[in-house]
Amino acid sequence: MKSNYLKFLPLALIILLSIFLFFSLNNDTSKLSSPLVGKKVPEFSLPNLFGQEELTNLDLNTENPILLNVWSSWCIPCRAEHDILMVLSELYKVEIFGLNYKDNSEEAKKFINNLGNPFVKIGSDNSGRTAIDLGVYGVPETYIIANGIIIYKHIGPIHMNEMEEKILPIIRNN
C-alpha cells in the first residue's frame, strides 16, 4: 500500500528541485548582504584628513539620513564614483562623510583637490581597522545612516541609475 505513494517520491523531489534551480538561476549570488544593516554604527574615532577635529561615530548621529563613503585615491572605480558623490552633495544637498581607506594622506589630498570635495568631513583609516569594524570588503562602499543606525549598504561604485533608483528614495523616505 505504502509503496504506491513512495513511487511518486522521486518525481516530486525532481519537480521541487527544478523549481528551486530555476529561481536560483535568476538570483544574483554576487550581492552580499551586510549583517550590520539595522544596527548602530560601531564606535570609532579617526584622524581628520584636512583638519584637527577627529571623525567619530557621533558625527554620524544626525536626524537626517547621511552617507558614509569608503574610498581611496588608489581605487579606480572610486574616481568614477566621485562625480556621483559630487552630484549628491551639491545638487541634492546630501551630507556625505568620507572614510579614507588605507591611503597615503598626500595622495588622498591631491585626489580631493583635483576632483572636488563632496565630503563634510573625512577620516583617515590608515590601518583599515575601522573598515573591518564596519564590515567593509573593499573600496568603494557606501553606507546610508540615520540616527546613528545603518539602514542600507551599497557595495561597489554607485552608478547614476543606482543613485536615482536606490540611494535617493531611501534618503527621501527616512
Binding site: L32, S33, S34, P35, L36, I132, D133, L134, G135
Partner: peptide
Amino acid sequence: LVEKYGDW
C-alpha cells in the same frame, strides 16, 4: 567576525 560580516 560574524557580527561584522555574517556567517558567511
